[in-house]
Each structure stands twice: as structure tokens, then as C-alpha cells.
Nucleic acid binder design. Structure first.
Length: 341
DNA sequence: AATTCGGGGGG
DNA sequence: CCCCCAGAATT
């Protein structure tokens, strides 16, 4: 039976009620939701699942309990805590955010969407999330959960992520976000998307919005949101160097732009294998798949180094574990370090 | 408007 | 194998 559309007020009341009885209340960042804790959690959660983030969040808070502690930390220390989480610009920006807030905001944490947007690494979604979760004030959010829920509930056609569809989604978010109980409302949106209105096998029978859901009522739940056209990703090759001396390994700190920015890594050269000298022999290889390309990597054993660059440094093998290393590089070291065999 | 940023969860 | 994940910055 098709019902008339829900007014924003009715939508808010039903969602908040659902959140209080069926939503998540035990996530680490929900306990003591200070602006700093909310900021850290929201940055970590960008394009990253809750279960993956939790141990990183706990370790981060143990090492950097306050924004002042984070502002005082070195970039290497920060990158080490982010290693394995991916999208490393988030870590660099989070450190910049701490410096920005402590030094340029007089230690006063921004508390409105407009000023939150000035924080490095904070975009429209994260600004709304901080307003909602940290300050319990009006802060519209549109993330993957909201896109999916809204596309189904409102029957929105078109691929989310395109300008036109996103404009519609954000307009709906601004219209349907209340001016009170924002913490519960925003959490309700995310929890509904994560536990009921899931990408696959959504549990529509348990959904309190089923009577007004356009997708359900028109039997299009499995067709909305409109899927993105898939792309074939290219394969790139990469040549890395294994330079070992006196029980130490030569590593290189990568530039802060590009892949694995600001992480320590085996030195990478931009030559073809055929161009390598006679005294260079293959140490091993690995493959790795990124979002937009596949990496087919070879690691070459080199006896001596021509000239050591400023961004290169020797590390004992056991000290490498403390560094922020790219995941496939870390795995390669684990397999090839002298005493690990 | 498209591309570039990781790595893993789960079907 | 596939799509997706509490997106932002850059081109």
C-alpha cells in the first residue's frame, strides 16, 4: 500500500525514534564525542569501514589524546599511526588540521559548518558530521549511506557522484535535517544505511520507512541507487631497490603528493629493467591493486649506492616495523628480512 | 566533470 | 571476481 510522502518533521521523528531503539550506541567515538575525537573519527571513516577504523582510532587516541598532542607530533610519528589505513593525505591533513586549529584559531575549535570547512581535509560531509556529532547542531550529511538511502526512499534516478544527482541529494539533506537532536538524526541516517538499507541484501522487512519508500513500493530496491559505469584499470610497472648494508636497509621518504605520499618506502627508480646494470639482480616481486591501477613491481638487489639522496636514510630491519610503510612494501620486508626466515 | 588518492570487508 | 566503504583535493 502506497503512502503519501513523509514531511521532514515526520521523517525526523521516525528516524530519531528508530535510532534510539535500533541504532548503534557503542562505537568508540560516540563515547565522549568531543570535537577532536569526532574530527579524528570522521577523517578515518572517509571511504573506510567502521570495523577497520576502530583499532586505528583506539591507538590514535592513546598516542594523541588531545589536539595539542597531535599538533606537537612529527609527521613520521603521525604517518606511522596511519600505516595500513590508506588514503594517506588524510593523515597529513589531519596533522595540518591540528596545527591550524591550535595556531590559527587560538585553540578554539570551529563550531559552524562554514568555519569547519576551512579545516584541511574537512569537506562538506565531514563539516556536517562534526556539527551534528560534536555540537549536536544542524549539520546536513551526505555520505555513501545517505546517498543509498535517499536514492531508494525518494526514488532518485541517476548515478550518485554526478553533479546533478549530488545536488538533489544535498538539497534533500538540507531540507530533511532537523534543528535539534542532530546527533541522533545523523547517527540514524548512517545506522540505517549500514544495517538496514544495505548495498546488498537490504532488510526491507525490518525497515520502518517501507510504506513510503519509492524503491520498495515500485520493486526497484535492487536497481537503486543507479550503479556507476565500471572502468577497466590499467597495469603499471614499478622498479624498487633493495640496498642492504651492515644489517640496515636503505629507505626513501616519498614526496607528499602521489601514491603513498609521505610514507617511507624502498627507493623507487623510473627505469625499465633492461636499463639496469650487470651487478643488479632480482630480489623478488609483488603485485598490488589500487583503486585506479594495478602495480606490477620488481625489487632489485643493489650492492652499492651511487649517491645517497636527502630523502633517504638507513634503518635497522627491526626499526622498519615502527615506520609508516606502504602495505605491500611492509609485506615484502616481512618475507625478505634476514632473520624472519 | 574527471581523476587521483588504499586497503580491506563481504557477497 | 565484484562492488562498496561515515570523501576530499586536485586537475
Amino acid at each position: 500500500m502506497m503512502h503519501p510522502p513523509l514531511t521532514p518533521t515526520d521523517f525526523q521523528q521516525r528516524l530519531i525514534s528508530w535510532q534510539q531503539t535500533h541504532g548503534r550506541h557503542d562505537l568508540p567515538w560516540q563515547q565522549d564525542p568531543t570535537p577532536y575525537r569526532v574530527l579524528v573519527s570522521e577523517i578515518m571513516l572517509q571511504q573506510t569501514q567502521v570495523a577497520t577504523v576502530i583499532p586505528y582510532f583506539e591507538r590514535w587516541m592513546a598516542s594523541f589524546p588531545t589536539i595539542e598532542a597531535l599538533a606537537a607530533a612529527s609527521e613520521d610519528e603521525v604517518m606511522s599511526h596511519w600505516q595500513g589505513l590508506g588514503y594517506y593525505s588524510r593523515a597529513r591533513n589531519l596533522r595540518k588540521a591540528a596545527l591550524y586549529i591550535t595556531e590559527e584559531c587560538g585553540g578554539q575549535f570551529p563550531d559552524q559548518v562554514e568555519t569547519l570547512l576551512k579545516i584541511p581535509g574537512v569537506g562538506r560531509y565531514t563539516a556536517g558530521a562534526i556539527a551534528s556529532f560534536a555540537y549536536n547542531t544542524y549539520g546536513p550529511i551526505v555520505d555513501g549511506n545517505v546517498k543509498r538511502l535517499f536514492c531508494r526512499f525518494f526514488g532518485i534516478e541517476g548515478v550518485p557522484g554526478t553533479t546533478q544527482v549530488d545536488k538533489t541529494l544535498w538539497h534533500l539533506a538540507e531540507t530533511y535535517t532537523p534543528n535539534q537532536s542532530n546527533r541522533a538524526f545523523a547517527q540514524g541516517l548512517l545506522d540505517m544505511g549500514a544495517t538496514v538499507c544495505k548495498p546488498k541484501n537490504p532488510t526491507c522487512d525490518d525497515c520502518s520507512f517501507q510504506p513510503e519508500c519509492i524503491a520498495y513500493q515500485s520493486n526497484r530496491v535492487d536497481q537503486l541507487p543507479t550503479p556507476k559505469p565500471k572502468k577497466t584499470i590499467p597495469t603499471r610497472t614499478g622498479q624498487f631497490l633493495w640496498i642492504e648494508s651492515n644489517g640496515k636497509l636503505l629507505l626513501e621518504k616519498r614526496a607528499d603528493n602521489g601514491i603513498w605520499g609521505a610514507l617511507w618506502c624502498l627507493p623507487q627508480i623510473h627505469l625499465e629493467p633492461e636499463q639496469l646494470g650487470e651487478h643488479v639482480q632480482l630480489k623478488g616481486s609483488f603485485k598490488h591493486t589500487f583503486t585506479h591501477y594495478k602495480l606490477d613491481a620488481k625489487v632489485w638487489h643493489v650492492d652499492r649506492l651511487g649517491e645517497q639522496a636527502d630523502n633517504q636514510q638507513w634503518f635497522p630491519f627491526d626499526a622498519c616495523a615502527e615506520l609508516g610503510l606502504p602495505t605491500p612494501i611492509r609485506k615484502f620486508l616481512t618475507r625478505n628480512a634476514p632473520q624472519s626466515a
